[in-house]
Design a protein around this nucleic acid. Structure first.
Ligand SMILES: [Zn+2]
Length: 276
DNA sequence: CGCCTTTGACCCGCGC
DNA sequence: GCGCGGGTCAAAGGCG
């Protein structure tokens, strides 16, 4: 793919050594310092916005490329042509089709560890129908079903990540056959796209690579989500980009705080805007 | 009263 | 068959 050489050196100049003021009036210095901080914060916010926009654009392009590749490689299964029943007859008994997996998408959500309830508000209405403890994860896994429409087949599994209690991994399965309440019918913002786990060894009907992923980042601690993206099935380009950005940013320790603050305000604006 | 969560039982596929 | 692990059911209870 033609990579338009993104300038990854963000040129962050945080001026971590404030000038030493003469000590005639300390409050003036504080006010001045505060103003300087505000200006810096504003600048960082703008910078962050630009970075996010670029990131989103890159993600969209990557998603398009992946989808094109999938369409070229395999015959696309139309969603409406899926058999009405998931069972077939073998001998005198019904058996269930295993490979009817519609589409699975994985979503990474960062939330503060104190949030014990795994209720992730993503615009839909979910009814919890189960909870199990899994083998290799101390936190339980919750099972939800979309209860917005009576026959909506969408399910999701929610579980905290291993060894990082501030990350919630939600796995969506299926597609909604209804719209999202009274919200705007336009597409929701796609921030992160991860690959489907469609690598079944002998899958007859291949799942269409049609996944919509959203990453919501609730940052309370100045920790970037590099590990999360790296651990998943993220494409290499995305991995590289994120790691590059993270290394650029984390090199400056005081940047993470400003970044967290900027993201918090951004997310608040986002929430108000979308009416979550 | 309707919708939700909780929670143990149940089911089912898989490996031994 | 049996045990195990993951997924689902459904009764019971909570809540506005
Ligand atoms: Zn739905």
């Amino acid at each position: 793919m033609d990579s338009p050489t993104v300038n990854l050196s963000l040129g962050i100049n945080l001026n971590s050594n404030p000038p030493h003021y003469p000590d005639d009036d300390p409050t003036d210095h504080l006010v001045e310092e505060l103003n300087r901080m505000n200006t810096e914060n504003e600048r960082l916010t703008k910078l962050l916005t630009v970075v996010c926009e670029n990131y989103k654009t890159t993600q969209t392009q990557l998603a398009d490329l992946v989808m094109q590749k999938n369409d070229n490689n395999r015959k696309r299964v139309a969603e409406d042509d899926i058999f009405p029943t998931n069972y077939y007859v073998e001998g005198d008994s019904y058996k269930r089709f295993k490979e009817i997996k519609t589409d699975v998408s994985r979503v990474l959500v960062r939330a503060d560890p104190s949030n014990k309830s795994l209720v992730v508000k993503d615009g839909y209405q979910w009814r919890k129908y189960g909870q199990k403890v899994t083998r290799d994860n101390p936190s339980p896994r919750a099972y939800y079903k979309c209860s917005f429409a009576p026959n909506c087949p969408v399910k999701k599994k929610v579980q905290r990540s291993v060894e990082d209690a501030s990350i919630i991994v939600a796995t969506y399965e299926g597609e909604h056959n209804h719209t999202m309440s009274s919200s705007s019918p336009r597409e929701p913002h796609q921030n992160l796209v991860s690959t489907t786990s469609s690598s079944s060894p002998r899958a007859k009907s291949v799942s269409a690579g049609h996944n919509k992923d959203v990453e919501i980042d609730r940052m309370h601690q100045p920790k970037l989500c590099t590990d999360v993206v790296a651990e998943g099935t993220a494409p290499l380009v995305q991995q590289f980009l994120v790691e590059k950005m993270a290394s650029s940013l984390t090199r400056n320790p005081s940047f993470t705080e400003a970044l967290a603050a900027a993201i918090s305000t951004k997310i608040l604006e986002y929430d108000l805007m979308d009416g979550w």
